[in-house]
Amino acid sequence: MSIGCLCIHGYTGSPEEVQPLVDFLSKRTNWELVNPTLPGHGEKLDLAGHYFQEWIATAELALLGLLDRHETVYIVGFSMGGMIAAYLAAKHQVERIVLLSAAGKYISLPQMCKDVGGMCVDACNGALASNELFLRYQKKLKQTYFISSFEFMKCVKFTRPYLRLVECPVLIIQGELDGMVPKKAADYLDDEIPSSDKEVVFLKQSKHLICHGDDKDELFNRVLEFLN
């Protein structure tokens, strides 16, 4: 039986957001793993003039290719990519989906305040240049086209109703320290998705970039076990 797996990164992100998981799976399976770059995204952002429909269409075309080539297809979606994954699973015959920090709800104000507080402490101590969270988001903030943030919100609004149409098995994984997607987002997904085969996992040491977090080994093994 041939297997394909589509991995979808998040808003303002790149395939690198999920690449550690892709590398893990590629070493342990013979699946075809596809990890496309959504229009305007990548290491250098160029979001001006791009719309959420393009992001969905790019992921859907990649999925259709996998469905054409393989008997079994999985989807893994991170953040906004998780919402696109749910939309695609509602429309197409896929075997299983994995939702990582899926942005059904977004912005955890309490955790974001803690993260900003940590940056302020490091700034006062002259250590901001070594703050990993600051370094990751500094580049994104400089490159993000403000208007495209509305496209992100429109993407989430558009895909939310399709959660109720997802019937395949679903694994939902959420970092407890995520400042972008609150912990309650996982509970929201669990409530909205009617699939009778659902599992929700909270990772205690993970922030938003969950595939790069301290719990990534647990995450990778959980995903492989679920998909197998």
Rank of each mutant, 00 (worst) to 15 (best):
S79A: 12
Y74E: 06
M83C: 09
M83Y: 10
A102F: 09
A89W: 02
I107M: 15
Q93H: 15
K105A: 14
Y74I: 02
E95D: 15
Q93T: 14
R96W: 11
M83V: 09
L100E: 02
K105T: 13
F78L: 10
L88Q: 03
S79D: 10
G77N: 05
I84V: 14
L99E: 01
V94Q: 02
G104S: 15
E95M: 14
L88F: 05
K91H: 14
A90I: 10
L99G: 03
V76F: 08
Y106L: 13
A85L: 09
V98M: 04
K105G: 10
A85S: 11
L88A: 01
F78D: 03
G82P: 06
A86L: 05
K91E: 14
G104D: 06
I107E: 13
Y106H: 14
Y87P: 02
I97N: 01
Y106A: 13
A103N: 08
K91G: 12
V76T: 04
A85K: 08
H92A: 04
G81R: 01
L88I: 10
G81A: 04
A86R: 09
Q93V: 13
M83D: 11
F78I: 10
Q93S: 15
A102P: 03
V94D: 05
S101T: 07
G82F: 01
A85D: 03
M80G: 04
A102D: 05
G81Q: 02
A86D: 06
A90L: 04
G81D: 01
A89I: 11
I75R: 08
S101L: 01
A103P: 04
F78C: 05
S79I: 05
E95L: 13
A89P: 07
V76Y: 08
Y87R: 11
F78Y: 15
V98K: 05
G104W: 04
M83Q: 09
G104Y: 12
G77A: 10
I84C: 08
V94M: 03
E95Y: 14
V94L: 10
G82Q: 00
